[in-house]
């Protein structure tokens, strides 16, 4: 099992100028280490749709890599998006799944069929170009530079140590304003860095 605080910095170090779309528990860890918060969008509204938002950005800016930091529970709610992504086959799309087997933000209830789901196999069956699974940090650290440089769409399933939240998520005016603000920040950043012709 890999811990969030171990895997997230590895991904962040290699992101370059990629846009990052994240959801749920991994979002907090990502926000702590992100080198380009102006290129980050956290899905605080629009449950489970990180892969769909990321796909739209990837299709709109094929010059720019898009990293999706998904949860297993989130992906299960939007499983058809694997097929939609594969159908579009964006070369710049890299899909991480933090597979902790539970709904961590609601206190750690198990996802259906917990620990017996093959997300890597699902991605390949849906038509992703490649898919991987890691449960050992050293293996991930060794392979990640190559994976993050290769053409997508690719999925990386990370067997992640569960960290159930002790408190629920408070919806506040500030938390609800965050996602639209981040979206406009990313829009502005992408406009200021147009595709090279």
């Amino acid at each position: 099992m890999i811990k969030y605080e171990e895997s997230i910095p590895l991904i962040s170090e290699l992101r370059g100028n990629a846009v990052a779309v994240y959801t749920m528990t991994q979002g907090g860890a990502w926000a702590n280490v992100s080198s380009r918060p102006d290129l980050d969008v956290g899905i605080s509204n629009g449950m489970s749709k990180a892969s769909s938002l990321g796909l739209g950005i990837a299709l709109g800016r094929p010059d720019r890599r898009v990293i999706v930091l998904d949860g297993d529970g989130s992906l299960l709610m939007n499983l058809g998006s694997l097929v939609t992504v594969a159908g579009q086959a964006p070369k710049n799309f890299l899909h991480f799944v933090f597979d902790n087997g539970m709904y961590a933000v609601t206190g750690g209830q198990p996802v259906p069929n917990m620990n017996r789901i093959d997300y890597r196999g699902m991605a390949l069956a849906a038509g992703y170009r490649s898919a991987y699974e890691f449960e050992d940090l050293e293996d991930l650290a060794m392979e990640l530079p190559r994976i993050m440089a290769e053409e997508g769409p690719a999925l990386v399933n990370l067997k992640t140590a569960p960290e159930p939240a002790e408190q629920g998520v408070d919806q506040t005016w500030e938390s609800n304003a965050r996602m639209p603000r981040q979206m406009r920040n990313v829009m502005a950043a992408l406009q200021s860095e147009p595709p090279q012709r």
Partner: peptide, 24 residues
């Protein structure tokens, strides 16, 4: 015009949001 087929309608508004962010 690029046609993007989807598997379920809920994806559509979110893919559109991504395209909008990307200037499309």
């Amino acid at each position: 015009i690029e046609l993007i087929p989807i598997a379920r309608e809920g994806e559509s508004i979110c893919i559109a949001a991504g395209l909008w962010i990307a200037g499309k």
